[in-house]
Design a binder for these strands. Structure first.
Lengths: 130, 130
DNA sequence: GTACGTGCAAATATTTTGCAGCAGT
DNA sequence: ACTGCTGCAAAATATTTGCACGTAC
């Protein structure tokens, strides 16, 4: 018998978590998502939110960000893109520039292994904090 | 009276923590550093290690990395450089390529704020995990 | 019907902090 | 001497997990 890859069920909880994440352009924390989803499913637990965020990340539907904080933020846009992090307020913006895939090749030659992709975060001060 | 910038004292603890971090090319966790420093100062506390890592980071002597883990890793090399993270084992290598400072300028034009620097991490599989 | 998913609560893991005494400058 | 720093222990924070029941497929 062939071991099939683990099937994922689209539960009401998982769907709404994904919807919440896709409907915002901020990069929320697990707790922010929890509060938001609770407006639709009041009895959902924080554990369920975390479990679903992990699954969605493994599937590749969302990204987990952890830039300088003790907690993670999540991004409903899984296409490769860069971020701008404000050093003052911690806010994160998406940056709309094409991804420099050629950098992976340059890095490959300097590394003991196989490079698959990269992430880049720009840091500075956002206009609100100037 | 002029408020002077807060002075930092170079204690035995702080010096040894910095020495430990500078003498390794791995990117250790706070706990790894704690165990290492304990060989020299057996009664040091983990709280002291965390407090000093924070100060050293603020001074700019070390870097705090948190790429995909629930815990931070630290880097005794504070000059700008890139990292290669193995997706299998979590190991981190330094990459010796010149830093692309021109990317900051390109990002500046797309961002609502002032870009000061960037960080980049390459992901893939290290040779030991192939 | 099967086995993945859920809610709940307790457990982990990591990092921070209050306090009284210690030590660098 | 002044004030930052330390060890200790407890607290705070974020995330994970065991369990019995629920539900997507």
């Amino acid at each position: 018998m062939i071991t099939s890859p683990r099937a994922h069920r689209m539960t009401k909880q998982r769907q709404i978590i994904l919807d919440v994440l896709r409907s915002t352009d901020c990069h929320p924390t697990a707790d922010w998502i929890y509060e938001k989803v609770r407006q639709e499913i009041p009895r959902i637990s924080l554990g369920t939110v975390y479990r679903n965020l992990r699954v969605l990340k493994e599937i590749g539907d969302i990204l987990e960000l952890n830039y300088g904080s003790t907690y993670s933020r999540f991004d409903g846009n899984s296409r490769a893109h860069y971020h701008f992090v404000c050093l003052e307020c911690g806010n994160i913006q998406d940056i709309h520039v094409p991804v420099y895939t050629e950098l992976d090749k340059a890095a490959s030659e300097k590394v003991d292994g196989k490079v698959e992709f990269h992430r880049m975060e720009f840091y500075g001060t956002c206009s609100g904090c100037q």
